[in-house]
Design a protein around this nucleic acid. Structure first.
Lengths: 247, 247
DNA sequence: TGAGCGCAAAGTGTAGACAGTCCTTATCCA
DNA sequence: TGGATAAGGACTGTCTACACTTTGCGCTCA
């Protein structure tokens, strides 16, 4: 149907994963305006298709075709694509056809480093002020990650990992940083799966997160910050290894 | 013309400052698509009016009225307002009139902390790799700050300060972090003036930046990171003091 | 007087149309 | 054969129109 400019792994067809992707786009795009909106619905659907690899980097996003598919006029389609452009999922050049954004290696490096810096901020706050209930939630999310790892389910692991970090940002109670991190997550969501499907990556990630959890239990903010940073550096290294090998 | 929900200081009428504000909005909103665009033009104009305080927090942004003023239809107006909403300058509730966003104290705190975390990242990179030419540019920007301080021109100082930090992000060569920082800057641009007009703030800021510059000259990344963090903490403290006194 | 109700005006969200730009393809010339 | 070019179709940016929602105001009734 659409031609591929740069293949970044095969499409995910698991409907549960697709729903998770849609929800992820939704909470960024719809933000606090939680009323159902035509534009937000379109953005979530198309955004999830990009994240799940159904639409590959470089694919055309023809507004006429999309308006037919969603049985609306082009106005809401254009607005939805603008939302996705702001999140870095879509590229809308003036007077030209919108396309699925093609992230380059520098972008990816920058995103991981920015994420690391902001998560350090989060980790310090969590370590300093986490309640027993908060710890329980983190443990629960971590248990999901372990279960997915044992089941060898990369897709489930990715989303469990998202949940784990979500718990962090929620506990730190910082909307601004949460928004930025969510936005950065969106851009790399597609790639995380690739990074984590590297042999040994899930196991290593589990170890790292176990240590982070212990640092939280000990209320050791400095260690937690260092660990969360190294988590990100490791993830980036695995991803870079994959991408350079693929190229 | 428009009624004020919450006054956050008087409007700036200096046309040079207004042009700077417009340019600031432009580089975020138009990003790399540098072709002149109707939507971007409207967004810059309205955005600058918000930053400069010509439109106060809570003011209505009626799309019909704006379309009359810019002699266009409502479609590009709506798109421009959506862009500004993504940057946190405007609030567009569904089915209700768009308004100039009203930042609350928690938002402001979060923004300053996020900025501090990301600027640390930038400072480390700059300190590690800055060339003699880069240092010269930083010194030049700093000299502008000092000149504005001596002239007692808060508005000029604010923009000189923006230039100084711009040099930092440019030298670190990190587009992603630059984009995020620009966006965060936009949200607080209006408030920075208030913070810096506090007695002694400009002088203190000059001292802080002089020390930062020395850290760069010594290629001391750790010190530079610490200094840039403390700059932000100081600025936030001054702003909080002003806002609580005003309330 | 004051709270509740209903109506008119104002404003938003979407549709559909049109002009201008871009892209593709077929044709021409070297 | 290969590269330039022009015509046609495809697509975008913007405009106008319209249905539906919200808002503000005046009226009723206690």
């Amino acid at each position: 149907m659409v031609k591929t400019a740069r293949d970044t792994g095969s499409a995910v067809t698991d409907p549960r994963s697709f729903e998770r992707a849609k929800a992820l786009v939704h909470r960024i795009v719809a933000d606090r305006h939680d009323r159902p909106s035509l534009v937000a619905g379109i953005a979530c659907e198309v955004g999830a298709e990009i994240i799940e690899g159904i639409r590959q980097a470089g694919d055309d996003l023809n507004s006429v075709e999309l308006s037919r598919r969603f049985a609306t006029s082009r106005t809401p389609i254009r607005e939805a694509l603008m939302l996705l452009e702001k999140e870095g999922l879509v590229d809308v050049p003036p007077r030209k056809r919108p396309r699925v954004a093609v992230p380059d290696l520098q972008d990816i490096r920058e995103i991981y480093r920015a994420r690391a810096a902001l998560f350090e901020l989060i980790a310090v706050d969590v370590a300093k002020g986490v309640s027993e209930e908060g710890l329980a939630r983190l443990r629960h999310a971590f248990a999901e990650m372990q279960a997915s790892y044992r089941a060898g389910d990369v897709s489930a692991f990715v989303w469990a990992n998202v949940d784990f970090y979500d718990q962090n940002t929620l506990l730190a109670n910082n909307r601004t940083v949460k928004r930025i991190l969510d936005s950065l997550l969106l851009r790399t969501a597609r790639l995380r799966r690739l990074s984590l499907s590297q042999p040994g990556r899930m196991e290593r990630s589990c170890d790292d997160h176990a240590r982070l959890l212990r640092a939280y239990e000990d209320r050791d903010a400095t260690l937690a910050a260092a660990l969360i940073r190294s988590n990100h550096i490791n993830a980036l290294a695995a991803l870079e290894a994959y991408l350079t090998r693929a190229a």
